[in-house]
């Protein structure tokens, strides 16, 4: 991915991510997240991780964000009520953000060994990100993790049903 394309996508990505936090209307906020996730998927695509890009859109933008929108509509959240922050809340949030920013910045500046990015696309093998390569790993070496995922999903189903029945009562 050329630096030009990277910034063409990264700048709106940051803008929409900010939109998620700053938008007053919850629907706009959720939609900003959808756009941000979509842009992220385009970046994955341009980095030759096409499978991940597609799954990113199918699962995150196409499924999870629909649930977010449903919750917003279900609870009839119109406008975010003017918050009455507890004293010190903002300070703590700020400190945590700064610490997070510091570590992320440190990682970004040092660069990860195999992270393809602007100018390092040659480091990638031809089969990188291909469906076969991913499936090979997932269904042989990580077979157990894959099976455990099904149990995790089962727990999620049970949890959802139990919680919803409580709400209905």
């Amino acid at each position: 991915m050329s630096p030009f394309l990277f910034f063409l996508l990264a700048v709106p990505l940051v803008v929409f991510s900010l939109g998620v936090v700053l938008a007053r209307s919850p629907v706009r906020s959720a939609l900003s997240l959808v756009v941000a996730l979509f842009l992220l998927a385009v970046m994955f695509f341009l980095l030759d991780a096409r499978m991940i890009a597609a799954l990113q859109v199918i699962v995150y933008a196409g499924a999870i964000m629909v649930l977010f929108l449903f919750v917003i509509m279900l609870l009839n959240l119109q406008q975010e009520p003017v918050e009455t922050a507890r004293p010190g809340q903002r300070t703590i949030a700020g400190v945590f953000s700064l610490v997070f920013l510091f570590f992320m910045g440190a990682i970004a500046l040092r660069g990860l060994p195999v992270m393809p990015g602007p100018g390092v696309e040659t480091a990638v093998t031809p089969s990188f990100g291909s469906v076969e390569a991913l499936a090979e790993r997932l269904f042989t070496r990580h077979a157990l993790a894959f099976e455990v995922t099904s149990v995790l999903l089962l727990v999620a189903i049970v949890g959802a049903v139990v919680l919803a029945r409580k709400i209905q009562r």
Binding site: I58, V59, A63, I64, V66, L67, F70, A156, I157, A164
Partner: peptide, 14 residues
């Protein structure tokens, strides 16, 4: 509707 969406996510991941 909320239930439908959450069950959908789980089976979509499947």
């Amino acid at each position: 509707f909320y239930m439908t969406a959450i069950i959908f996510i789980i089976f979509d991941v499947e």
